[in-house]
Design a protein around this nucleic acid. Structure first.
Lengths: 241, 241
DNA sequence: ACCGCTCTCGCTATTTCTGGGGAGTTAAAA
DNA sequence: TTTTAACTCCCCAGAAATAGCGAGAGCGGT
């Protein structure tokens, strides 16, 4: 435990806003944990490609294990938050699968706590991160805690993500060369399941022309093939289906 | 001007949280405008497909003109916020193009005000919206206003978007037959741009087996082809890249 | 006036993917 | 225990995608 009294929230936020290095995020998150008097706080930038960044108060062993075992793929917190907009209590997630229950058990064994609350945050180009607070207590206390602090946590998540984005400009390698309208049309229809012939017919262009669009979109997105291009366009929010 | 005194912010937010109809968003946004004593407040859900939804205090004439002329395509507020994470003062955007200056002139003529501040908000599946406040005053006053109210505006934007997502019928929770781990692996690697041969090699299975996974995933997702299956898996949050 | 970009259309050849089949083993729920 | 589901492997013909090469019209910005 920290011997000093917890810092005031607005002071911590101010420090955070003025942060100029990644290490200050770690300091801030520890201060925030002490301020809210919870077991853990974590900021987790989620990137499925395997590279992830985060800071927080989980034990290094747990973090390493999480990465090693690729728990990203089965963690219900990730899966659940990815489809939600609002912050979510871990209890409301789907822990029914066997893999998820095993994961939960292991997490608790690593001292994560039986309660958790995660705030999804999204940035440009499909960037996605979580701000999570976890603790060991009973349901009533936790419900009161999350109800009281939801708004603060949303703001904190926002500020953390802002700083993380500021510090990691190279994480968005290609800052989204925008697609032309026709390219958007083409990729959208492909993502909707149309074959090339159907897309060409729908857009009233020849299939040859369509292929030019797909290729130029693929080039702009740095994609290896059509599937990749559609996936990137989707995850960067360039097309919506 | 409103004769009644402005409502307190937390009351307005509470009303907003309890809202059960879209029309209540309109009421809330008018209350918020009065509370902050600004000319306009607007929530604008931007969908790349062209269809938009919003509520706010802009004149109907301006809204109609905006839609008619497809100003979405040239509005620097949209373009700028789409690439940014943090809220932005309109002065910091790129108004250099001819079309943008013409648009700005017209907007001011419609009483939008010479100052503006927009908060980008993002939801699942590339959903994107803006919460905008605009006013007519000089730079110093506006700078002080935005500095003072930035945090509140971020929260308000968040709550508005939450409600808008709740009300959107499109957000129906798909039954979403879950994919098997191998199917998830296969679709994920495909979405990352791997060819079938590479995926099979990575997963240490034959390409024939891989095809079985892709097909069963396609069947579960109700997809017409591989591109469609990957797109659906992505937009349903079944795979993360 | 020119540059760059978008949009449209054309060709060939090679590689990859798809959509139908069927069949056996293992591991986990009912 | 039975049954269900996941996982693994195989064939083949035809459709789709990729990598190259072209061309010309139109539009907005420097």
């Amino acid at each position: 435990m920290n011997a000093a009294p917890p810092m005031r929230l607005d002071i911590i936020l101010e420090d955070l806003e003025g942060a100029s290095e990644l290490s200050e995020l770690q300091t801030a998150i520890e201060n925030l944990r002490d301020h809210f008097k919870v077991d853990h706080m974590v900021y987790h930038w989620v990137s499925g490609a395997g590279d992830q960044y985060g800071c927080g108060t989980y034990s290094p062993e747990w973090v390493q294990r999480y990465l090693e075992k690729e728990y990203l793929r089965i963690d219900p917190v990730i899966q659940g938050c990815y489809q939600r907009f609002h912050p979510v209590d871990w209890k409301r997630l789907d822990w029914s699968s066997k893999a998820a229950r095993g994961f939960q058990k292991e997490a608790i064994a690593h001292g994560i706590g039986n309660q958790g609350f995660s705030v999804p945050v999204r940035g440009p180009n499909g960037q996605f991160a979580l701000y999570t607070v976890s603790h060991n207590c009973d349901d009533d206390i936790w419900a009161a805690f999350t109800e009281t602090n939801r708004r603060d946590l949303i703001l904190i998540a926002h500020y953390f993500n802002q700083k993380a984005l500021d510090f990691e400009p190279d994480r968005k390698p290609e800052p989204a060369q925008p697609l032309s309208p026709r390219e958007v049309d083409a990729l959208t229809l492909l993502a909707m399941g149309y074959s090339r012939a159907q897309v060409a017919e729908t857009l009233n262009i020849s299939e040859h022309t369509l292929r030019v669009y797909i290729e130029s979109a693929r080039f702009k997105l740095g994609a290896m093939n059509t599937v990749h291009a559609v996936a990137r366009a989707l995850s960067r929010g360039l097309i919506v289906i």
